[in-house]
Every structure is written in structure tokens, then in C-alpha cells.
């Protein structure tokens, strides 16, 4: 089936099997391997991207469902050479170690801040319920998101 999906501002047209998951379309068809896969039951959140501005686990969506939609992946978050404030905050606050969960964490938290620009620490912790990290104990991830919210909130 033919699909046309806009990813990070570029329109990609491909003929794909309907069963192809969006995450495989992104990683394997387009070679955008910043989006990672950490589980097979929609729990871990490593594959989180934005679809039409809202966070989505791209393992829980068929690529055909994304036909005609706008997608942002971790590769499309920075504005040219300028890191997104969330990326900067993760870097500044040691919000990552092995980095595998990081793209999903950053995508989930940037989407979260759109709905809740001034979250409390508790709200941040709750907002991460769809994302696992095994390295950081979440401590510096929470700190990073808090810092980003302060920076972005001005």
C-alpha cells in the first residue's frame, strides 16, 4: 500500500506492507535510527515520537495509520544546530547514561510540556509512566525536564 508520511518536515512516499509498524518504517525504511525499540508490549517508551504534535509509541501504530500525518522524531527536534531546550537540559543535567531510552524520554517530555508547561516534580514523575530508564534511576531525568520547563517557560 502507498503511504505518504511527513517526517521531520520531509514527505516520504513508500509502498509498504500494511503490517509494517510505524517504528519499523522510521527505522528500517527511512534509516532514522534515533528512535529505538526496547520492548514488544508497548511498555518501555523508547520508540516515542510525535504524531500530529502528540506523543505516540511508534511500535503501537501501523505505518498505514500514519498516512498523511506529520511526524517528528528525535532527529527532527533540534532547530538546525541549535539543540531543543529539552536536549540541552538532558545534557546539562546528566539526564542520560547509556542513552538508549533518551530519545523516547525527550520526545515524551517535550510533548508533556506542551500540555503542562509548568509541571511540579510529582507531575513530571507521573508523566514518565510510559517510559523506562534502567541507568539513571530517573533522578536526573526529572531534573532535566524541570530545568527545561523553567528555561522554556522563560
Amino acid at each position: 500500500m502507498n503511504v505518504s508520511i511527513t517526517i521531520n518536515g520531509t514527505v516520504y512516499e513508500r509502498d509498504i506492507e500494511p503490517r509494517m509498524l510505524l517504528v519499523h518504517f522510521i527505522r528500517e525504511e527511512l534509516g532514522l535510527t534515533g528512535t529505538n525499540i526496547g520492548c514488544d508490549t508497548s511498555q518501555c517508551g523508547a520508540c516515542t515520537i510525535h504524531m500530529d504534535g502528540r506523543s505516540l509509541k511508534s511500535c503501537t501504530c501501523l505505518a498505514v495509520q500514519a498516512d498523511g500525518r506529520e511526524i517528528t522524531t528525535i532527529e527532527g527536534l533540534a532547530d538546525g544546530d541549535n539543540l531543543h531546550p529539552m536536549q540541552e537540559a538532558f545534557w546539562d543535567n546528566h539526564g542520560l547514561q547509556c542513552g538508549y531510552c533518551t530519545p523516547g524520554m525527550i520526545m515524551a517530555s517535550t510533548a508533556f510540556l506542551k500540555d503542562n508547561p509548568h509541571p511540579t516534580e510529582e507531575e513530571i514523575r507521573h508523566a514518565l509512566e510510559g517510559n523506562f530508564c534502567r541507568c539513571t534511576g530517573y533522578q536526573n531525568i526529572v531534573k532535566s525536564i524541570k530545568a527545561a520547563s523553567e528555561k522554556m517557560g522563560g
Partner: peptide, 23 residues
Amino acid sequence: SGIRRREDPRLITGQAKYTDDMV
């Protein structure tokens, strides 16, 4: 000194290559 990690730029931008990313 608690300097920022030098590993991070590639990891926070999705440029890092893990084994499954190899083609």
C-alpha cells in the same frame, strides 16, 4: 569537576549508532 558528558551530543540527537542500527 562535574563537566557535561562528551558522549551526550550524539545520544540526545539520535545520531548514536547501536548494533541494530547498522546496515
